[in-house]
């Protein structure tokens, strides 16, 4: 399968790989996908008291497109308010990375991951 240059770039040099402190109430974790399906994404965001995302980290088990989708997402959400971050659509990710139709599910997973992370941090802060 031919990958776009952007997918290869994110795959070769993934941005923001890592882990944030799960226990902090300013950290939200979104873990989506399943090993059986071949993709698991863990996206974590750290927010300030205004709900602005100060830091984002990910780890992804999955194909190159899944890794690239999550890597790109961490770049996009940094500096955004969580209300804006959860509006990111999978189609924007798919378009930016020029994902072929069989890889659209990778971008859907990334959208699910940021939504889950925002939900998690909201829950922790009781808002």
């Amino acid at each position: 399968m031919a990958y776009s240059d952007k997918v290869i770039d994110h795959y070769e040099n993934p941005r923001n790989v890592g882990k944030l402190d799960d226990k902090s109430k300013f950290v939200g974790t979104g873990m989506v996908g399943a090993p059986a399906c071949g993709d698991v994404m863990r996206l974590q965001i750290q927010v300030d008291s205004d709900g602005v995302i100060e830091d984002a980290k990910f780890k992804t088990y999955g194909c190159g497109s899944a890794i690239a989708s999550s890597s790109l997402l961490t770049e996009w959400v940094k500096g955004k308010n969580i209300n804006d971050a959860e509006q990111i659509k999978n189609t924007e990710i798919a378009q930016e990375l020029a994902l072929p139709p069989v890889k659209i599910h990778c971008s859907v997973l990334a959208e699910d991951a940021i939504k889950a992370a925002v939900r998690d941090v909201r829950g922790k802060q009781g808002v």
Partner: peptide
């Protein structure tokens, strides 16, 4: 494996078969 959340979990001693995954 450095990139893999499953490897992290395995290293933390989590049994992946006991995790409830959101199948898609």
């Amino acid at each position: 494996r450095e990139l893999s959340p499953l490897w992290d979990m395995f290293k933390d001693g989590i049994d992946l078969n006991q995790v409830e995954w959101s199948a898609h």
